[in-house]
Amino acid sequence: MERALFIRVKFTKTGAIRYIGHLDVMRYFQKCIRRAEIDVAYTGGFSPHQIMTFASPLSVGLESQAEYMDLKLNSLTSLQEIADALNAVSVPEIRIADVGLLPENAGNAMASVAAADYAVEFRTGKVPACLAEGSGQSALDPDKCRAVIDKLLARTEIPYTKVLKKGERILDLRPGILDFHFDEERCALFLRCDASSAGNIKPIQVLESICAMEGETLAQYALLVTRLEMYTRKPAAEGEENGELIPMIGICEEHLA
């Protein structure tokens, strides 16, 4: 039997397109793939659909430098050709950043996503006092940020009440926060956290926890969040609890970027 041909596509989602919901991004790509005439594999039956999977959905309003989609193909001439063909028919706000050939045993994008990086910025006038420079609410104060982050990370538990359709659930965010620091270059908060389907953490949950810790409430629509990267884990080596985190494209045997 011929080996199934799966590719992983890394793409950006920026500008106005941040308002396109996850399901519509999927629909967008279905049409994009047909415009690009990519030899994608379809399911059978009366309403065949393209065989594709997306990694963790991005909330409406967030930008991303690294979204991932896996595609099953019937044939492939070159990865570059896929990237070029998709970019030629895509809107400027969605760019194909990388394409890789997935190894045979790789889990699909949705199942194998483990963590994500985010840059967290604030809308003008909505910086919480515990992070803000001076008495204004427009810029971050690096020292305050570092101090508050350290205080948060020093806690053994960070309980967070998640409001669900049916009642509430209390989560502990602490184990899912893998890295959290002030990024001087970007003048933003950098957060690496769990993005697996079981333990996904949203940046807003962490920022709300900070505000709660400092006796504040995070203003509505305060955050400007950009997803920077998504990771999967290598199989755990002996003696390791978890495998090493690598960017989702890194699992590919070959990729463009």
């Binding site: 106005a16 308002y19 415009r35 409406v60």
Partner: peptide
């Protein structure tokens, strides 16, 4: 845009 239903209706930028 974040507070209304289906902001996609108002942003243009379609193919």
């Amino acid at each position: 845009l974040l507070s209304i239903d289906k902001p996609e209706r108002y942003i243009g930028h379609e193919v």
